[in-house]
Amino acid sequence: MTSLLIAIHVLAAVLLMGPVMITVSAYQSQMMKAKDGDTKALGAATTLHRLTSQYGPISAIVPLAGIAIFLTNLSVFGTQGRFHISILLSVIAWVLLIALIIPRQKKTLEALESGSNAVDFTKAKKQLSMFGGIFNLLWIITALLMFV
């Protein structure tokens, strides 16, 4: 059972977290190009947001599978603090994605599509870059903790 859960956990991390990490990082540059009237960039920003908002919630499989692995073999994983930290960091990263990154992307994309100037795109870019960087860093630390 543990082997199956580990396989699900690793596959979900590779197939879901990789694309989300890339889309979270790439959105800001396309948003700024779209702000300047680039229609191709608007299409790219729309696609990046769609991928982030669809893969993001599904990526909860990664920390959930990690918790399941942890609980099914508590005698092995429960005594190692790196797994406690990994689960905590991945949950924080996922909450950051759902609560801060996706809503900000949605808000800026709606402003781009409507042609509204209600959004300060420079500030939004800085915030999205910061939160995206933190999100990616948390996942990189989590991945490194799995192999230490």
Rank of each mutant, 00 (worst) to 15 (best):
V24P: 04
S25K: 13
A26Q: 13
Y27M: 09
Q28I: 05
Q28S: 15
Q28L: 00
Q28D: 14
S29C: 03
S29Y: 08
M32C: 00
M32S: 09
M32E: 14
A34Q: 02
A34W: 01
D36T: 03
D36P: 00
G37P: 07
D38C: 01
K40S: 12
K40M: 11
K40F: 09
A41C: 06
A41I: 12
L42V: 02
L42I: 03
G43H: 02
A44H: 02
T46C: 01
T46H: 08
T47V: 03
T47F: 07
H49M: 04
L51F: 11
L51H: 07
L51Q: 09
Q54K: 06
Q54R: 11
Q54N: 12
Y55T: 01
Y55F: 15
P57K: 05
P57N: 04
I58M: 14
I58N: 09
S59A: 15
S59E: 09
S59F: 06
A60I: 14
A60L: 14
I61A: 15
I61E: 07
V62Q: 09
V62G: 03
P63G: 10
G66D: 08
I67R: 02
I67H: 08
I67S: 01
I67K: 06
A68Q: 02
A68G: 01
A68I: 08
I69D: 01
I69N: 10
I69C: 13
F70K: 02
T72P: 00
L74G: 07
V76E: 13
G78A: 04
Q80A: 14
F83A: 09
F83P: 06
S86V: 06
I87Q: 03
I87H: 12
I87Y: 06
I87D: 04
L88E: 07
L88Y: 07
S90P: 04
S90L: 15
V91C: 14
I92E: 13
A93T: 08
W94R: 05
W94D: 03
W94G: 00
V95N: 06
V95Y: 12
L96A: 14
L97E: 05
I98N: 06
L100P: 00
L100F: 12
I101H: 06
P103D: 08
P103I: 09
P103N: 07
R104S: 13
Q105N: 08
Q105P: 09
K106E: 15
K106A: 15
T108D: 07
T108A: 15
T108P: 05
E110G: 05
A111C: 08
A111Y: 02
A111N: 04
A111M: 08
E113C: 02
E113W: 01
S114L: 02
S114Q: 11
G115R: 14
G115S: 11
S116E: 10
S116N: 11
A118P: 00
V119I: 15
F121L: 10
F121K: 09
F121N: 09
F121V: 03
T122H: 02
T122Q: 12
K125N: 13
K125H: 07
K126W: 00
L128Q: 11
S129N: 15
M130W: 11
F131I: 04
G132V: 11
G132R: 04
G133P: 10
G133W: 11
G133K: 12
N136C: 12
N136I: 14
L137P: 04
L137K: 10
L137I: 15
